[in-house]
Amino acid sequence: MTTRRGLLTAAALLAASPAMAQEVVEKKVFEAGDFRTRGGASIPNTRIGYQTMGTLNAAGDNAVLICHFFSGNSHAFGRLQPGGPAGYWDAIIGPGKAIDTERYFVVSADTLVNVNVPDANTVTTGPASINPDTGRPWGMSFPVIAMRDFVEVQKRLLDSLGVKRLALVAGPSNGGLQSIEWAAAYPDFVQRAMPVIAADIDAWMQGWLDVWESPIRLDPNWREGDYYGQGREPPLRGLAEAWKVVTLQAVDRAFTGQFDRKLPEGQDPARRIGDRFAIEKWLDDRAMARAKTTDANSFLYMVRANQLFLNDYPGVQAALEGAARRWLVIPAPNDRVFVSDGTKQFIELLRKAGKQVEAAEVTGPMGHLNGVVGMAPVADRIRAFLAE
């Protein structure tokens, strides 16, 4: 995830305009209590983190829910501290922006089994959490989580906040999938859905998700998920290789062109088989840095949640038949994760189901990640969609 860091000091921020001061948001914790999964298992003491901006109206119907991508968390907008980095969709969420927090009450929440367990700004329940029956981390005994389980915990959160209807549910990638799941599960609760860089999880995509996670299972330090004990090393190498696959698939060839025919200092792959090309070193460094801030078991559980997208329905068409009516679908034409033909097919399925569908595109050299870091150019389309 790419973020930008604010230049204001804490003192300068306090002296800034009310609109600027409002950009600082508080990370909160929702205690969801005992939760029964779609698979029938019970999870005690379920918790997720969330943040809000704006004010809920008396009718409770001006709420917007933002769902995060695979490796993200609730930090979609604002800053968690003065001068800190802005949320990934800060370009379109805030006072006077496309999703205007002077009009809408915007909520963004961490998912269950969030991969960012080591991050203090992430609150989640998953395999790294303590099982109260054993006093030890759940590991792979944690119940299987489906995409619909993300939605059901978020629904509890929204109910606790007094939300009666969502004016919009939106998000990129995994967040877009959650948006679709929301629209199918609660069509009367969701007025509009805006999945970004997301479509169906078909067998081809399920297979890619298996490729993503395979290096973790092959790392001997994984120990079938039992690596949390004292003196045991986490499967960092396998997790880094997993992030390497995700990272390369998430960017476009145009982005990687900067590494063409370049070699790190002291490296000569034409002479020594162990030496690296610049693209390899970039992937190695980026993936290992990400591995050190995430949890391998949570990665596996997040993969399975994606593979169980719309699992309550016999197929995507059946799910969409009863879904919410109004849609804005935003793909990236150079997306290597949710490829163009799959997105076009998804839009046609929506239209076949009789939905009111608009489409816009996010473009740029970042491929799939255009839907995370490149949303500013489609701000007017989003604003118009909300005004209809």
Rank of each mutant, 00 (worst) to 15 (best):
A296S: 07
V303T: 05
P264V: 10
D284Y: 10
D284C: 02
P264Y: 12
G231V: 08
P234I: 03
Q230T: 08
D252H: 06
R253V: 11
S298Y: 04
R232V: 06
A242R: 01
P220H: 07
K292W: 05
Y227N: 13
V245A: 11
R290L: 15
T293N: 09
I216R: 01
W222E: 06
A278N: 06
R253F: 13
P220L: 12
Q258L: 13
L248T: 01
R261Y: 13
P220T: 09
W222R: 06
E265W: 03
M302G: 08
R223S: 03
Y301R: 00
T256L: 15
I216F: 08
W222M: 04
R276K: 14
T293Q: 11
P220M: 08
D275S: 06
L263T: 06
F259I: 02
P264F: 12
E265D: 09
Y228N: 03
R276S: 06
A254R: 15
Q267G: 02
G274Y: 12
I273Q: 09
I279S: 13
T293V: 12
P264E: 12
N297L: 03
Y228R: 06
R286I: 04
R286E: 15
L263C: 03
F299S: 02
A240L: 08
Q258R: 15
I273M: 09
R261C: 04
S298P: 01
V246P: 00
R253I: 05
G257A: 03
T247G: 06
E280D: 15
R237D: 15
N221K: 13
N221A: 14
A291I: 02
L283Y: 04
A289M: 13
E233S: 12
G238Y: 10
G229L: 11
L283C: 14
P269W: 10
R304F: 04
R286N: 14
P264C: 10
K244L: 11
A278K: 07
Q267C: 06
Q249G: 00
M288L: 14
A287D: 05
Y301E: 08
T247A: 14
V303W: 01
Q230G: 01
L283Q: 08
V246Q: 05
